[in-house]
Design a protein around this nucleic acid. Structure first.
Lengths: 333, 333
DNA sequence: TTGAAAGCGCTAACAT
DNA sequence: ATGTTAGCGCTTTCAA
């Protein structure tokens, strides 16, 4: 298998005995080409195995039809990425997803690489909190949309979930089932969603007038940290009877740590996940509307592309309580 | 926010009062540029907000550092994609993942788009069974690797799991726990892995000499079809006491359908999944080695890039039985 | 309806 | 050590 030179449009033109311009017309389905010429060119294309060079084509101008998505992670399930892709496709775009690996430097690297390729838009699940390097790209008119968390240092269209409402709903749900000692274990507060959810929880607690000390536990999502938080919450003098977990991985760790004891506690998890209904007890959750988040991100992108002067907006997408059993138990003490 | 023209290398050169070539040198960190010039150019770059155009740069030749991955799905968890990305990164590449949505036409579309952008390599999770359109790309020397299933109509490096060994292991495991009536419910046979696993199951059954009728159920992964298969398997005159499920989604559907009755049956699922240990009973599975699959795919890509004449190879990656409880029950009748 | 020529933004021979 | 010039493969005025 000798490495053969890739045929260019010029090669096709020569092979077909026509001008370069004619090949270009055929490739771009320009109707003003004679049938005989079209055949000759098509034949040459097929014989040579010619495929157009998108780089050159786009260098000359025009849309790429490509949207870059810089997301934290490619291996874990990513429902928003799925709906982003579907929505993009529905509008004739293709999504290229790249992982930022939750690293600030890597995020900058992949996003700058996207900029260099002049895509039709960039969707960002921000990791860092300084995205000023995107200024020139923004100036050049590339639509940029942040989701899940806001971008930092630049003003771009943004889609986030209503974290505060979600925590509020979970809290009231547990209160309605008679719980007064409700604890929260979640993500680190330096992470946007971690902060929003912890803060909302604190606000809920404060509003009740009940004692609140020792019930709010933000921090790293690591077995040891979560085990410690659980200990603090369950084995103190006035143990919690209900628990709100701040994201899916925290929920998993909590369930794993509690084992059968999970059944003695009311639990509402932030974030739905595929097997939540198959767990025993099935898990009551606050589900984010990833379908709407993805679709909205693409809509914002398209509207921005259509009108660069329109005001920048942040869309907050509602969340939903999904009742499955774990959150409806009454306090046992 | 007026849409400003994107500054080019030429603009930088003029602003800095140097030649275009000098800017190119500075951008590419050529050491033969005088310190004073470097400063002038750097300043101009920063003032103008210049970013290099990768399309133009790569049009001129050289590597892009980009590997395209065409995978079936972006939203469900995709462990191989994660390890692919990690392995690629370790070798200085960036993975662009695009969804084929399990549609043959879409697959062709996204793969052809990848070809047009002249990436450094393409990793494919094949959907269709005719990839002859990749011939020219192969001839041009682009490394292409298929994983999970083989590509069709072309000869490319391939990484697959040892499906037959996995089914064999599951089968022998259940036999060792006393089961003689073992059933299989899995994916459609027109799908490569579906066929491989069903065929391996049939071979295992045949080798026992026991009656085999009505125990092998390949088909669409849909609630109704799976419910029917379960009925046939469990409510016949000689019901199965053990079950092998052919992939993760089938496992989910089976568990969902069985509900508490799942505890009366020995079950081994093909494919591990994040919450398998938290289910009650915890699920015994045949786990694919996605880490090795991803790493091997990138290795094959790199070796192909280094030596286009090397023989094409198919690597079969071993699978592992993970014992968790569901597969170790004895027959109850 | 077809073709010749310019140029997109960049890198790389080839001067100087 | 810096600058000039010719393309990379394509689209696009502008002629014929």
């Amino acid at each position: 298998m000798a490495r053969r030179k890739r045929p260019t449009m010029n090669d096709v033109a020569q092979h077909a005995g026509v001008a370069l311009r004619t090949v270009s017309r055929v490739v771009n389905e320009d109707p003003t080409v004679g049938a005989e010429f079209v055949n000759r060119v098509r034949a040459a294309i097929s014989v040579l195995g010619y495929t157009p060079d998108e780089r050159a084509r786009q260098l000359r101008g025009g849309r790429s039809g490509l949207i870059g998505a810089a997301v934290r992670n490619l291996s874990a399930g990513h429902p928003v990425l799925g709906s982003l892709d579907a929505a993009a496709r529905a509008h004739g775009f293709t999504v290229h997803a790249t992982a930022t690996a939750d690293e600030v430097d890597r995020e900058r690297e992949v996003v700058i690489s996207m900029c260099g390729r002049h895509l039709d838009g960039i969707v960002l699940e921000p990791v860092g909190d300084n995205h000023q390097y995107l200024g020139p790209e923004l100036d050049a008119g590339t639509p940029i949309v942040a989701f899940d968390r806001p971008a930092g240092g630049i003003t771009v269209d943004t889609v986030v979930s209503d974290n505060a409402a979600g925590i509020g709903t979970a809290f009231r749900h547990l209160r309605a089932h008679g719980h007064r000692r409700i604890a929260y274990i979640g993500d680190q507060e330096r992470i946007f969603t971690g902060h929003e959810r912890a803060a909302a929880f604190r606000a809920c607690m404060a509003a009740t007038g009940d004692p609140v000390a020792g019930l709010t536990h933000p921090g790293a999502v690591e077995p040891a940290r979560i085990a410690a938080a659980l200990d603090a919450v369950l084995h103190g003098p006035d143990p919690a009877t209900a628990l709100i977990t701040g994201n899916a991985s925290t929920t998993f760790e909590v369930l794993r740590r509690l084992g059968p004891a999970a059944a003695t506690l009311a639990i509402v998890g932030f974030d739905d996940f595929p097997l939540a209904d198959l767990l025993r007890p099935a898990l009551t959750v606050i589900a984010q509307d990833s379908e709407t988040i993805g679709r909205t991100a693409i809509d914002l992108l398209r509207h921005r592309a259509a009108d660069h002067a329109r005001p920048v907006q942040t869309v907050t997408v509602g969340v939903e309580l999904v009742v499955r059993g774990s959150g409806e138990r009454s306090p046992t003490r």
